[in-house]
Computed example of a mutant assay.
Amino acid sequence: MQNTTSLPEFHFIKISEDPDLQPVLFGLLLSMYIMALFGNLLIILTVSSDSHLHTPMYFFLSNLSMVDIGFISTTVPRVIADIQTHCPVISYVGCLTQMSLFIIFGCMDDMLLAVMAYDRFVAICHPLYYQVIMNPSRCCVLLLGCFIVSLLELLMHYMAVLKFSNFVKYNEISNFFCGSSEVLTLACSDSIICNIVRYSIGTIFGLIPIPGIVFSYFKIVSSIMRSPSSSGKQKTFSTCGSHLSIVFLFYGTGLGVFFSSSLSHSTKNDAVASVIYTVVTPMLNPFIYSLRNKDIKTALRKILSRILVNIPTIIIASSFSY
Rank of each mutant, 00 (worst) to 15 (best):
S216H: 03
M66E: 11
S230G: 05
F59Y: 04
L284Q: 09
G256P: 10
L30Y: 07
P286G: 11
H265C: 13
F60A: 08
G106F: 13
A273E: 03
V141L: 03
V280I: 15
F147C: 12
S227L: 13
R306D: 04
P127I: 00
G179E: 07
I148C: 08
V115M: 11
S6F: 09
L61A: 06
V221F: 13
K219M: 02
A273S: 07
I213T: 01
N40Y: 14
V79L: 04
S216G: 03
S181Y: 12
R138Y: 11
N166D: 02
M35V: 09
F71L: 14
Y33M: 08
V93C: 04
F237V: 01
L255D: 15
I204E: 10
F147N: 12
I204L: 14
S318L: 12
H157K: 06
S264W: 11
R138C: 06
K233E: 00
S165A: 08
G254Y: 02
S245E: 08
S266Q: 07
K233T: 00
H265W: 12
G232P: 01
P312N: 07
S222F: 04
P23H: 11
F26R: 01
L143W: 03
P312E: 09
L61V: 07
P286A: 12
K169G: 00
M35C: 14
K219S: 01
M66N: 09
V89S: 09
T298I: 05
I314T: 12
P19Q: 14
F287I: 13
Y129G: 08
E17N: 11
D190P: 06
Y118T: 02
S319V: 07
M159L: 15
Y251F: 13
G202F: 04
L255H: 14
N3T: 03
G212W: 01
P209N: 09
G212K: 05
K233N: 00
F259S: 15
R292T: 12
G70R: 08
S245F: 10
N285A: 02
K233I: 00
I303P: 06
S223K: 06
N40I: 15
Y277T: 05
I103G: 05
S238V: 03
P77D: 02
L37A: 06
L142W: 11
F105N: 14
F287N: 08
K297S: 04
M159F: 15
K219A: 00
I124L: 00
S290Y: 06
G106H: 12
S264G: 09
R306W: 01
Y251C: 04
L142F: 14
E153K: 15
